[in-house]
Structures are given as C-alpha cells and as structure tokens.
Design a protein around this nucleic acid. Structure first.
Lengths: 142, 142
DNA sequence: GACTGAGACGTTATAATATTACACCCGTGA
DNA sequence: TCACGGGTGTAATATTATAACGTCTCAGTC
C-alpha cells in the first residue's frame, strides 16, 4: 500500500527496468525504497533489519543480491569508503558518480561529468572510477 | 618491485618519522616493509599472516594499529574499493592521492595534484577525497 | 497437463574485514 | 621511587560480505 505515493525516482526505476527487460521484484523494489527514503548512506545490515518485519525472512544474501542488482542498473551507488549505499536520483549510466558526503549531517550530493583526471598514467584505460569527497556541506557550515 | 634491504622509501619513512617526532617501531617498520615489497594492494589479514612467523603474536589490532599509524603519516594509502593497502612512494601530505589500479596485473600507480572536481556543490568544503580508478594499465594492454 | 530451463529467492554456514576493551610492559620525567 | 603515557599483547566480538546448495515459480514447449 501507499503505492500512490510512488516517488519519481521509484517510478523512473520501474521505467528503466522495463526498458532493460529487468524485473523490479518486490524485494528489489523495497530495498530501493529504503535506500531512497534514507537521508544518507545506508548500511547493508540496516537494510536487512528494515527488511525483516516478519520472521525468518531476510538473510544477508537477500539484501546483497538486491543491492547488486540495483548497483548494476545504476539506481544506487556504493560509498566505498563507508561500505554503505546511497540512492541515485539521476538514473545515469553505471559509470560512476562523484559523491560529496557531509561528515556532519551525513547527506550525500551527487555530481556528474566525471572530472578528467589531471594526469592519467601512460596508456592507462579507465573502466570504473570511485570518487568520494568528504567534508562539510553548505547547510552545516552556515 | 624492489627487494633491497634498505629501500629508499623505507629510509624516507625513517626521516619523516624523525621530523615529526613519531616512532617507527619494529612492528610499524615491518608492516611498512611488507606493504612496500608487495607488487600491489595488500590485505590486512595477509599482512597479519606475514607478520606471524612465531607463535601467538600478531593479532588483528597489531596490524590495524600499524596501518593506522602509517596512513596517518601518508606512508601508505588505503584502497577503499578493495579494502586493501598500498605503499606510497611520494611521502606527500596525507591529503589523498589519485590511484590507478590495473585490474589485470594489480599494479597501482599514484598521481598527485588532485583533480579539481568539475562542480562542487554550493558551499561544500572538501576535507578528504577518495579517488580510485580501475582499468587496464599500459603494460597489460600491449 | 507435464516437462524443462532460467532466474529469483530461502537458508545455512562461513569467510573476510575491523573494532572494543582491558591488561601489560617499558621508558621518561617529577 | 612513582605515576604517566605510548606502544603492544590478547581475547572477544562486531561488521561486512560471500559460498554453496536447495526450492519455488514462471514461461515456453511438448
């Protein structure tokens, strides 16, 4: 229930899955909801807790499988330095985003257009980049 | 890489510690050696194994404490996306380096001069950046 | 309807990574 | 001497993640 209040991001996810022929199953959808609802990076085991209102169900593989799926579609990002996950509102390609994480309030802002590295080593071909900035956001500094 | 008994990096580390009034104890020195000798990122528990020729000694806190010390001095970097550690030959400030990790051979190259991010969110002040690029190095592509 | 193959999920166990808490030792300086 | 602090030893545990294998369901097919 409360499906009427589908967030735009959730709706975009459904559209994306349709396009790619992927299945946004209830579990995957629920995990995405939880990540999107959070106001900051979420830990896998917090998702796990949130996922088990009933008994028995929701073991680690459940949430990791859902996260893997969502990461693959670029619907969530992993914050490597925190071992945590954030929802992605842009639904861009999975390439990787540039994340700005406020150490005070925990909020995460996402920028796109990967910064061309000043100098790439001779012949190095980049496939995936992890770019995470930690600091203090404008709100927390004012 | 180098297996010299007195690598330049090790000597530089001693100098740095002298300057900063820090103590490069045998354990810390041994951990640094191990990280520098490795030809790629090293896992904490691999260090732990390498550290225990004798019985009893070398429990997790031992290696994590040494790593924390070395990270603090910028003598090693943590590869967040791998939960692994690499030696730093530059002995620059702890600010953070830009790492290029070859997925084929595991080698890590380090560049400096942090790439100005294309767009920093309004008012965001960056304190620490994690920049890790994964791909294929020139050697592995030729 | 029954068979089959693929994908998603359930379940158990365990691996891998990291930290907490407290005790001990040892050198320095009051 | 004594207290103190830094570094280390040790046990226990917390946190994060994966392996291995079984089951269920659904679509396509016979």
């Amino acid at each position: 229930m409360s499906r009427d209040s589908t967030s735009p991001a959730l709706h975009a996810a459904e559209t994306l899955c349709d396009e790619k022929g992927e299945r946004l199953t209830p579990i995957r959808r629920r995990v995405l909801e939880l990540v999107l609802e959070a106001d900051g990076p979420v830990k896998a085991y917090d998702l796990l807790e949130a996922l088990k209102p009933g008994p028995g169900s929701a073991k680690p593989p459940t949430v990791y499988r859902a996260l893997e799926f969502l990461l693959g579609l670029g619907l969530v990002h992993k914050v490597e330095a925190l071992n945590a996950y954030v929802g992605c509102s842009h639904s861009h390609d999975t390439g990787g985003a540039e994340l700005f994480i406020c150490s005070d309030c925990g909020s995460v802002q996402e920028c796109h257009g990967a910064p061309a590295s000043t100098q790439t080593p001779d012949g190095f071909i980049i496939e995936r980049s992890v770019v995470e900035h930690f600091g203090h956001c404008g709100n927390c500094r004012s």
